[in-house]
Design a protein around this nucleic acid. Structure first.
Length: 421
RNA sequence: GGAGGCGUCGCAUAGAGGCUUAGUGCACCUGUCUUGAAAACAGGAGUGGGGCAACCCACCGUGAGUUCGAAUCUCACCGCCUCCGCCA
């Protein structure tokens, strides 16, 4: 959510930002709606003020005939208030509906473009492996090594269901351990967070109302979150933090659920696109400064790049174009790991910053040195998404006989094992 | 699941339709005093919104309602506590 005052003072910038994100919204109309809202608000407040004043007079006055007269007068004013309040409510609801659809303004450095096709590579790392045989897909490799069972996964869980087993299961655990330990060393607070969340955190993070179809709804008010970001951001909802405690750095683990509506034909095979997976997520809350946000954005991206390098997985970093940004995102990098069987990079991490877009909705503030309350800035980046990361890993580390070498850094978490065969 | 009790300004408490647009204590900020601090004394101080301003409006878990007037009464919801049951 943007501040209405900010929108008012920067309507051209906000409108241009929406255009860059390919979001269709009429800021001029929002502002005329706001004018109407303020006009009604003023009228209602003036009437309420009158009622307050006269009510006090009634209480203090001893003349009972005058009291009766005043009460009668107030009865009329009250009806007037009721009618005006009704009107104000209607306008305010329409205003709010529009406000939650106003996108955050993308950074100057975000390239123009419509979809992920238009994202721009800014750097690539690692030697893509050269095979003197045709590389197998992670599906074939994992099934042959009995690391995964899709058939029974579908039997039990439905479309896109899967069981991880044997070295497939321990590989997940190994990655979690390795990533978690690294981030704890970096001063992050480890958390296991709920996936079952109420609406507030989803609206607060900007997942609702736009992306309702991507979520599983499991109750009147409860949904299954698609990322640990949701509950982690909800953690400090409606709280005031101490500036000296900033930045807050969380490394959060949770199951993640994605309905993947409208993507039935995409990535049907394998564990690239599934309805249920696990994720370790970085979440940062920092003071309200663009420079701080940019600094942390580079840092949370660098952490992941470092880990990819220690795993010796070839990857590239792209800067997402305007059309591929979420509603609240100012700028986003995707880190894409090399998938030999597809001969292309696939997104494994997504690193973004939001300024105070999320925290304004969630009510997460801190008291600044000048004594003013400000909304903190928020950022997040994937640390480790299992299943996508292990899918890339087995493909890059495969050998001609179908076995998979375990990256050195993970071996200690897999009982010293060097090869899955 | 059953039965009771309770959600008040950072914390702790008072308040039970109009001397409460919320009192008191602790903590906090500013003075006086002091070499400095502590103590004492005096004053200040919540959040959001509107207005150039004086000032006005809203907020006592959330949302509806009764009333000229609601922290206070009614209803629903959310949460917490105690006991019982069930499960681990």
């Amino acid at each position: 959510m943007l501040d209405i005052k900010f929108i008012r003072e920067n309507k051209d910038i906000v409108q241009a930002g929406a255009k860059k994100k390919h979001v269709d919204i009429d800021i001029e109309h929002l502002l005329s709606l706001d004018d109407a809202r303020l006009k009604e608000l003023k009228e209602v407040e003036e009437l309420r003020s009158e009622v307050n004043r006269v009510s006090n007079d009634i209480a203090r006055n001893q003349d009972s005939a005058l009291k009766v007269q005043l009460i009668e007068e107030m009865r009329v004013v009250k009806d007037d208030i009721k009618a005006k309040e009704e009107k104000l409510k209607t306008i305010t609801e329409e205003w709010q509906k529009m406000m939650v659809h106003v996108p955050n303004i993308p950074d100057m450095s975000v390239p123009d473009g419509e979809s992920d096709e238009d994202n721009v590579e800014i750097r690539a790392w690692g030697e893509k492996p050269v095979f003197n045989f045709t590389p197998k897909s992670h599906v074939e490799l994992m099934e042959n090594l009995d690391m995964v069972d899709f058939e029974r996964g579908v039997k039990v869980s439905g479309f896109r269901g899967y069981f991880m087993k044997n070295d497939g299961a321990t590989l997940f655990f190994a990655l979690w351990q390795y990533f978690l330990n690294y981030f704890i060393e970096q001063g992050y607070t480890p958390m296991i967070v709920p996936s079952l969340v109420r609406k507030e955190s989803l609206i607060g993070t900007g997942m609702l109302p736009q992306s309702e179809e991507d979520l599983y709804k499991v109750g009147e008010n409860e949904y299954l979150a698609g990322t640990a970001e949701v509950a982690t951001m909800g953690y400090y909802m409606n709280e005031v933090l101490d500036k000296k405690d900033l930045p807050k750095k969380f490394i959060s683990f949770s199951p993640c659920f994605r309905a993947e509506a409208g993507k039935h034909g995409k990535d049907v095979k394998g564990i690239i696109r599934v309805h249920e997976f696990f994720k370790i997520e970085q979440v940062i809350l920092t003071e309200a400064s663009h420079e701080e946000s940019v600094k942390w954005h580079e840092e949370i991206t660098a952490h992941v790049e470092h880990l990819m390098q220690t795993l010796k997985l070839p990857y590239r970093v792209v800067v997402n174009c305007g059309g591929d940004l979420g509603l609240g995102q100012v700028k986003k990098y995707d880190i894409e790991a090399w998938m030999p069987s597809q001969a292309k990079y696939r997104e494994t991490h997504s690193s973004s910053y939001f300024h105070d877009f999320q925290t304004r909705r969630l009510g997460i503030k801190y008291r600044d040195d000048d004594g003013k309350l400000r909304f903190v800035h928020s950022l997040n980046n994937t640390a480790c998404a299992t299943s996508r990361l292990p899918a890339s890993l087995v493909e890059n580390y495969q050998q001609e006989d179908g076995s998979v070498i375990i990256p050195e850094v993970l071996r200690k978490y897999m009982g010293g094992k060097e090869v899955i065969k």
